[in-house]
Design a protein around this nucleic acid. Structure first.
Lengths: 213, 213
DNA sequence: TAAAATACTAGACTGTGGTCTAATATTAAT
DNA sequence: ATTAATATTAGACCACAGTCTAGTATTTTA
């Protein structure tokens, strides 16, 4: 190993020590109970090192979320091909929910959802999800090609509707303390939305029967 | 005025001074930019007084939300009676969104949604909304009586689905920086959900065609 | 190999929301 | 009217995430 690697190595090792210890502590005592000072004490490093390697306490916790994209791609590959595109969307979304529940966990999801809304630096949330967004968008495009969407919505409307639905499912599950699985609580909304897309709406109904709004 | 009123008065006046000045500052410079020290300076009070009258900085901002319930009841009274119950739900929900957008504003909604998910003290969010929840539940019950719900969902499923949808709409709007109105971005999801409720689902489809999940 | 540039580390310091305690004002009890 | 109980106020203090600066180690340039 040459000098260059050695040099990077010092940092990499420190970073790794911090990351490991931090995640260990978060797991043991919960994210909110663990302080940065504790992490640097346990990992025998310093404030300076901590913030050299991580931009915030949250980022180190959120780091776990980076495997998500990888997994989404995996899920999408394993979807039976004989399903309609809309059914694929439902199937895929439910698998995503299952993954978030079982592999990521409620506490992490809460931290993700709260940091996304409490600051304008939700770049991560929006960007890191790109693969998720792209996968969904691709399905929608195909659904349009196959004429599966019959309620007159545009691609963007369908897309936004789905994202709103998924976010609503996760947010609602996040603030509730019951132990029902995310997949289970999310299934009805997803189904209803998909059915909504499939069902031709009476144009007269939506423009004349309810003219007041 | 007797002694008792006088005594309460001192506190009430202080409380009012803090509240007024705080909301004024929040409005002028934004919630996050205003510090508690600034508020007590501007209102000529003290830390002790501030926390005597308010449990947190957020609570003083969230205070504005207390008129919400009142307004929800008002909306529900003014809904045309010749609409179907499901249409009423859609109408009502859209009016709620309109109110939250125009009267409450995005910053307040973000603070509400972030404090609800970042601590377990979201009692307020859940409880203060009771009237909203009750109104929606009542509509749903009537919709069931009128046989408007044809997709086989239980009352709780319909209820949860709607709440998830509404929360999703608000959350999604909250993290996005575009200026589209909440009502406008929420309309498609609400419509799709309602259509989903109305549309009989093929029972065989949901239990046999997709047995793998 | 000397000098310059860069990465890394340590820990003092800051900003800010929130707590605690002691003092004072007000009300209630006797 | 005295005393006890309670509400209110002031501001020192604490906790904790995050910043800043000075110093050290490593790498690159020449």
């Amino acid at each position: 190993m040459n000098k260059r690697e050695n040099k990077q190595l010092r940092g990499v090792i420190t970073r790794e020590k911090i990351l490991t210890k931090a995640l260990e502590l978060f797991k043991k005592r919960g994210y909110n109970k663990v302080t940065v000072d504790e992490i640097i004490l346990a990992s025998e490093t310093s404030k300076g090192s901590f913030y050299q390697h991580f931009p915030s306490k949250a980022s180190i916790f959120l780091y776990q979320f980076s495997k998500a994209d990888e997994y989404y791609t995996e899920i999408s590959k394993n979807i039976p091909n004989d399903l309609s595109e809309l059914t694929k969307i439902e199937y895929f979304s439910l698998e995503v929910l299952d993954f978030l529940d079982k592999d990521m966990g409620k506490e992490l999801m809460r931290v993700i959802y709260s940091s996304a809304i409490e600051s304008n630096e939700h770049t991560f949330f929006i960007n890191a999800n790109r693969p998720l967004f792209k996968i969904i968008r691709t399905y929608i495009e195909k659904a349009f090609s196959n004429n599966e969407i019959k309620n007159g919505y545009s691609l963007d409307e369908v897309y936004t509707t789905l994202i709103q639905g998924i976010m609503g499912i996760i947010y609602h599950w996040g603030i509730n303390n019951n132990i029902t699985s995310l997949k289970q609580v999310g299934q009805p909304l997803l189904s209803a939305i998909i059915i909504g897309f499939k069902t031709p709406s009476n144009i007269i109904t939506s423009t004349e029967e309810k003219p007041s709004y």
